[in-house]
Design a protein around this nucleic acid. Sequence first.
DNA 1: CCTAACTTGGAATGGTCGTTCCAAGTTGGA
DNA 2: TCCAACTTGGAACGACCATTCCAAGTTAGG
Lengths: 209, 209
Amino acid sequence: MPDVRHFDPDVAVAQVVPLLWRRGWSHTGMQDIVSATGLSRSSLYATFGSKSALCLNALRRYLADHADPAFRELETDGRGLPAIAAFFDQLITARCSGPHARWGCLATNLQIAAEGADPDVRTVLDEHHQHLVAALATALRAAEQAGQLHEDVVIGASAEHLALLAQGVNLRSRAGAEPSSLRWAVEAALGALRRPGSHATPGPEMSPG
Amino acid sequence: MPDVRHFDPDVAVAQVVPLLWRRGWSHTGMQDIVSATGLSRSSLYATFGSKSALCLNALRRYLADHADPAFRELETDGRGLPAIAAFFDQLITARCSGPHARWGCLATNLQIAAEGADPDVRTVLDEHHQHLVAALATALRAAEQAGQLHEDVVIGASAEHLALLAQGVNLRSRAGAEPSSLRWAVEAALGALRRPGSHATPGPEMSPG
DNA sequence: CCTAACTTGGAATGGTCGTTCCAAGTTGGA
DNA sequence: TCCAACTTGGAACGACCATTCCAAGTTAGG
């Protein structure tokens, strides 16, 4: 009977995530993956099939670990605008400081780096974007019911708007934008949705960078 | 006395722009540049020095040809919000249709593709972003003086906000987003700035994609 | 212990990358 | 015409790319 695999594929995928995230698709070679995982090319190809398949797994793993929890929190937190503000606040914090500072968002990065390579990657990225829009729409509906929005805010359109804003934050944070500048921009976007009577979100200080 | 150059460097740079724009930095090889320009490697290296130097020239050329005119129009058009709406409208049109449809913005693309490669590229991209923010701020000041904005709009913060939105449009348009969806998002962003009494911008129809 | 079935390390494959090099060609003054 | 100065085409370079291949190792039923 056959020999069994000497390693855990999930661990290997997890080790590939930061590689792909930080250095990008084209700057990550199989040699880097071999070095990072400590596995041999044979094992990697026998298990995953190709570099793109392995990286697709890494993308899914990234989304499950880093994006989905934040999205779920945004969806379930019923506070409305404060929930959205908190979402952006933790987004900016994660993008500009900590172990992944200036790495951007793997999904955003791949959107440009993966030149329509795998249609699978494209599909995953599209679903991810729709997921973000949906989560923002849910939070906006909560804000609407709490009377935090002025009347002519269209939920769907504003959700798309804020999703594009998040993409912009991801992009600019990787390019080195100051967190204060990003927070200032986000506060402007959310402040414009707020109903005149509604009190401002208590949160981190917002000032130009 | 020496032989003189047999070609016009500006023409060569112009021929490189669409290559870099459409296919990206890593997917554009010197062979592609040789083929596109019809020049030999020797001539290219003697004139530009390296692939990155040549591509830096191409980036500057792109900004001068495609970004600066639109920015100037945004700055000089005194109408306020309608000028900003027109800017985004022509941005989305250019990104989703015509000869450069789905190519995104070269500056946005390079922001991720050029992994901090040349610091020169990084500098040019940063200046470009500041240029966009400044142009938006100018247009917002015009809007403010025309009484189009509600009182608690902060010009600088909103300019940063709209610049991030433009980056998001560039990114998502390359990923295949529907123009109607992008227009919808932009209309939400601008609508939230508008003073209740001020009449809506007459413009292209905005509906969800 | 034997062997079929499978994994593993590491060499090897063919290709492409940016860059360099050189012989041949071109230019305009002496 | 001769030559120094420069450009040009195209071959060549070493490094890296994703992928394949194979001999050696490992496993468990017979």
